[in-house]
Amino acid sequence: MKKIKYILLATIIATIWGCKPEEFGPIVGSEENFLKEMQGTWSLTKVTQVDQNAVSNGWPYKQLDITNIYPYKELVVSFQGDASGKPSTFTITPGNSPKIADLNSGNWSVDNTKAPTVITLTNNGQTSTLTLGSYANLKNGKFYLKREKKVNGKTILVYQYEFTKK
């Protein structure tokens, strides 16, 4: 009986001793991960127009794949980083594709280095912004950007761009 008591006591102590907070890795990637993964040369592989008015009103005809109407797939974008991996320069080579931003070269930056949502392109005081879509597939070589067109702050029309790493 005494032995059982000792065994129970030892088990309780071992259990309590073993209950320590476990250290988990970060849920989002470190800033180097996303920013470094975004850097490189990307080809535009899909363009979708989304009618936000139809989406919010629950109407049919919410979106349209316009990739093949004009040669969007000729467009290539390159995001470069400096030696420390921070965003530096970008170039957009449109080929015969309609333009997706107002600038074709300059510098790029992000609003949040750990979880970026907005990419700002700048050149000689001019700026153009693009919104980042899901970056869950960055590791698989897919990258999504959005361009939103607004009236008095309300998003009316969205262009969704899918890029594939070259």
Binding site: Q49, D51, N57, K149, V151, I156, L157
Partner: peptide, 23 residues
């Protein structure tokens, strides 16, 4: 109307400017 009314002629997107793809 704010509800969708099927019509013989329509455009997509419902609002656009001169730089947009229109169908």
């Amino acid at each position: 109307p704010l509800v969708f009314v099927p019509m013989q002629f329509r455009v997509f997107p419902s609002k656009m400017d001169q730089t947009d793809m229109t169908t």
